[in-house]
Design a protein around this nucleic acid. Structure first.
Lengths: 245, 245
DNA sequence: CGCGAACTTGATTCTAATCAACCGTGGTGG
DNA sequence: CCACCACGGTTGATTAGAATCAAGTTCGCG
């Protein structure tokens, strides 16, 4: 068996990888670094040449607007590829902060270049996953642009849930959000006060229940309807990619 | 001189391309197809195996929510690569409609596969541009989630302007929007009525002026401030990519 | 035990949506 | 050729949904 990695494992869920590819991906994770909850990984406008694989914990990307308000752009989970913006921009367009204690594996973009050169199939795969991220963004965009506060909360919860379940099979109907209501609000364009009211309302209606930070989804079907949510992870198809050479 | 293409020309603005790469990209555009204004290119949930290069005109991607409201996800200009979602999904997550008479060049995703296999540097380049699209989405996300109606209109106009200028050097301070106020609203999460009020207000304040569908930006600096807008096209850096072999 | 951060709740304000009417213009068919 | 129509734009009045402001309360932790 060849050395594997968090990232290779994730990619391997989509497409079989050769041993050489696995080894190459594992090399990206040679320098794990621990980050404390709240620790800043990357600051907006800072010069960056590094990307990251998130191995453990949770990380968020966000921007702060001139009036001080924050927009959380994305919450990342183990196995996610973070900071891809530095492939095109020398200055970070977004900040990265650990939402929980986390382990990240930084690597220089020149390491990525070598990977792309030597393993074109991996390059293709990264291209596809970047497209998947783009689609995830468009879903959020429709949510923020055209749906009610309640719908946004519902779809946000479902999205977190489905993404967590990708890597953790033990999850059936409940999960630790590990976000404050203020953070939820900053992710979906609401104030913490209003997020609270919506969560509370959904709890009273029997859609969800809560116990010390843990959310249980009681009526998944109704939540999906309320949030206009579609699970994008189910029907991905990458089979048409180049086969292992 | 080797046959070139709309798409190769665009990519070539970022990174020098070899003749072989140009030729390969040109092959994607072998089957141009004319589309009338309003013509549907792709319907959401339909099975799709094609992607497109937009050669002429304008195209938008959008979704319709169950209550009938529409969210426009992206407006595309000549040289743009459209429908990349079908690289991962067999069913289209978004619809594509021509905003003006347009010429699109469809190609099958298996043609893309061959391209990615044979020209790894192009694969890398597509990966990077997909990341750029993702960043553009995050900018919109912050705009919809955390800024006022006026700010959204301002940043939307500036974004259109800067993207048009990428391919059309003759543009200095004015451009044809070719969108109805309702379409603008659907792009930035407002009603047409409110878009009208904002545009009108910005006109009175001397920020912009209008003449039969043509917008002139009178105070670019102030517009950027109002819209919290940053031009992402200026400081892209792809020089670290593999060099021509 | 006391402190601070997160959560909860009510009262009020404000932004944008909704509803409704009207105008101007370009295209169409009688 | 002109009347009419449809679509996009404009404007005012009213409403609704979320923000804001303010004041507790609960919980985890040093």
């Amino acid at each position: 068996m060849v050395a594997t990695s968090c990232f290779a494992e994730r990619l391997g869920k989509h497409v079989p990888l050769s041993d050489a590819e696995r080894a190459a991906l594992a090399r990206l994770e040679e320098n794990p670094r621990k980050i404390r909850r709240g620790g800043m990984i990357q600051r907006v406008n800072e010069t960056v040449t590094e990307l990251f694989v998130l191995r453990e914990g949770r990380v968020m990307s966000f921007v702060i607007l001139p009036d001080g308000s924050r927009q959380i752009l994305r919450v990342y989970f183990p196995g996610d590829f973070i900071g891809s913006a530095s492939t095109i921009y020398n200055k970070a367009p977004e900040s990265l902060v650990a939402l929980s204690d986390a382990v990240i594996c930084p690597f220089d973009k020149h390491a990525l270049r070598r990977l792309l050169e030597e393993y074109p199939r991996v390059a293709a795969l990264l291209f596809l996953l970047s497209n998947a991220e783009r689609v995830a963004m468009t879903d959020r965009l429709a949510s923020l642009g055209r749906t009610s506060a309640k719908a946004r909360v519902a779809s946000f919860l479902l999205d977190m849930f489905d993404r967590l379940r990708l890597t953790d099979d033990s999850i059936t109907d409940s999960f630790d959000l590990k976000l404050t209501q203020e953070e939820i609000g900053d992710a979906i364009g609401l104030t913490s006060v209003h997020v609270n009211r919506m969560i509370r309302q959904m709890e009273q209606e029997g859609l969800i229940s809560r116990a010390n930070g843990r959310i249980t989804l009681l009526d998944m079907a109704l939540l999906e309807e309320i949030g206009h949510y579609t699970n994008r992870h189910k029907d991905m198809d990458l089979d048409w990619l180049p086969t292992i050479s």
